[in-house]
Design a protein around this nucleic acid. Sequence first.
DNA 1: GTGAGTGCAAAATGTTTGCACACAT
DNA 2: ATGTGTGCAAACATTTTGCACTCAC
Lengths: 146, 146
Amino acid sequence: MSTHKPDIKEILRQSGNSITKPRLLIFDLLVGQEPMTMYQLYDKTKNQLDRASIYRIVDLFEKLGVIQRISSGWGYKIELSDKFAEHHHHLTCLSCHRVTPIAGEEMEAFVTSLSKQHSFRAIGHQVEIQGYCNDCEATASSSVRV
Amino acid sequence: MSTHKPDIKEILRQSGNSITKPRLLIFDLLVGQEPMTMYQLYDKTKNQLDRASIYRIVDLFEKLGVIQRISSGWGYKIELSDKFAEHHHHLTCLSCHRVTPIAGEEMEAFVTSLSKQHSFRAIGHQVEIQGYCNDCEATASSSVRV
DNA sequence: GTGAGTGCAAAATGTTTGCACACAT
DNA sequence: ATGTGTGCAAACATTTTGCACTCAC
């Protein structure tokens, strides 16, 4: 719970963008949440915002490095970027579709050495692990197959 | 270079699906290629196939475990699955968008231990590393920023 | 007051579906 | 011969764009 996170208003101001209600709302809806799809985000706005605006804001936030997209099955989900949360990776449950963030310091070192072997200058990386979470595994025997 | 790969015709036959020209064509277009988008795949068919058919075939192939989707920026790309190529991961160049497969035995062990820590039964995993490949890095100083 | 940001409506893009015909078995 | 697979066209979902109005500065 470090309070050392950057301030969204500050980021907007310093990048020459206006601080508007829609932008703050989107930000608030993402804070402390698990990664969500565009539709889920739209849903959370309860018709306070237009879809187009949400796409534009998400776009802006991505350019500013406020949020990041992560792959989720066929599509993607968005979440606050590493600026606002520790860098981490994800466990995606194939049954309940919950995305669990996991910290992984060791992973970083691993990626670094891997990149060196391939003369590749790594900027970012994502690790996605699919499987079954503890809860679903427990009820797996009686659960319905999809 | 093991010749121990399964046969697409055999897979189709054994799963009770017909062996058709469109299916064989799609398979052929994927063999030995880097991951490609649906559009790229469609493009390669040179109007020999309908878009809808391609989606249906890709769908079928995914269910049969013949191909797999990997995330690529906002969307996804498809490639032959580990059945037809060694299990591997990807380096995605942010400049030329080339996707380079990398083998990574160590990664597997890492994922396993990580999963254990979280009481998560891992089924599959994907590692994506973004950065700049050797070629692009060389010309980076003179290249155009996007 | 003025320009950036938003909502609205419409367009563009990507994907899915229903149906009649064609092909694999 | 017969039932699966395909092409076609239309529906649907997702994302983008143009424009007039509104709000932040």
